[in-house]
Design a protein around this nucleic acid. Sequence first.
DNA 1: GTCTATATAGGGATAGAC
DNA 2: GTCTATCCCTATATAGAC
Lengths: 210, 210
Amino acid sequence: MKTRDRILQASLQLFNECGEPRITTNHIADELDISPGNLYYHFRNKDEIIALLFQQFEKRMETALQAPQRRVPNMEDMWLYLHLVFENIWEYRFLYHDLDNILGRNRKLRTHFRRILERKVATAATICQGLADAGIMTATAEEIAALAQNIAVVATYWLNFQGIRASGSTQDSDSAHLALGVYQVLSLVAPFLNGEAQELLRQLSREYLS
Amino acid sequence: MKTRDRILQASLQLFNECGEPRITTNHIADELDISPGNLYYHFRNKDEIIALLFQQFEKRMETALQAPQRRVPNMEDMWLYLHLVFENIWEYRFLYHDLDNILGRNRKLRTHFRRILERKVATAATICQGLADAGIMTATAEEIAALAQNIAVVATYWLNFQGIRASGSTQDSDSAHLALGVYQVLSLVAPFLNGEAQELLRQLSREYLS
DNA sequence: GTCTATATAGGGATAGAC
DNA sequence: GTCTATCCCTATATAGAC
């Protein structure tokens, strides 16, 4: 494996574990048993490492958010799509733990992250409108607009919220946290669903939350 | 006004404007035209300033969260209570912009903030249960549990979310942002309300969002 | 590509005079 | 209470040898 890629991988891991602001370029070099100078041969600076990691994150997130727009998804589709989103957030959680700080230092990242949020809201709205058109849910345009934004908020910050609430307690497995997030987001949609879809959702929740 | 208090005030302002990690003790001293040494006469270190500000925040937040537990509130009560919460978050927004970072450096703050989140969830659940008992809304215990957590998430992170989304656009007034947050939280509750309460809520929204 | 050594800068914090 | 001067430490980043 190339040193450049090892640096990216180690950075991601350390950032996720300790928080990006606490990890210096020296820490990263130490972790890999290379010299700080070597690190700077491969990257101009720390920001460039962050930008590269962000790019990976963005690419995966865009894929995850485009998929559901192609057709009206059923409940299980939605569960899986959302799980993909949460997995991606989890793997790049360092971004979310110091979001304003990181975005505040880099205009490009800010713009791109804003675009991701817009797309999250838009995707949520599109899906809900599709469900409404298909008679699976009932909601006015106003309700869908507010709902889509709330979906985006919970789908963005749930892991942060849960991370603070759960700190100190015996930690459940990561995947349990993600599934809980999916459940919370879908419970935003639930009250608008017709009886049949609501029942399907309840079954799915029992199945996946275990 | 005592120097000690001026330091606290200026710190809060600078932290809110630029983010706590970017503001050094020297910046604070500069802003007040006092020497760094003088600042350290009044405070052992930067963390002590943050801890004091947090204490102010916590006190106000606890008051705001206790009030609604006393009786079953009507829609307008809820609007006003929520507005108080959002105002408080807004005035101490620096905490929210680097939440994990700040809480990660100080165990006591972490514990206390976790307590605030717990109380947010608990208060939301109590209110919803009260509304359900009074026949104003209809929801199962499961639904209320999920709802209360979502209320807490949106009531905690809405301003962060909106801050990223709105960055670059012509900024609306602060109070408009707060009202929008209140609206978003109440729209979580709306689908569970009976027709009459829903209509009341719609009227309130039109009135306050203007 | 990788290392060692080092320059530079800035932030946190203290000592001691006034 | 306040100031000046300063110290220490750490983080980023570079230069030049190998």
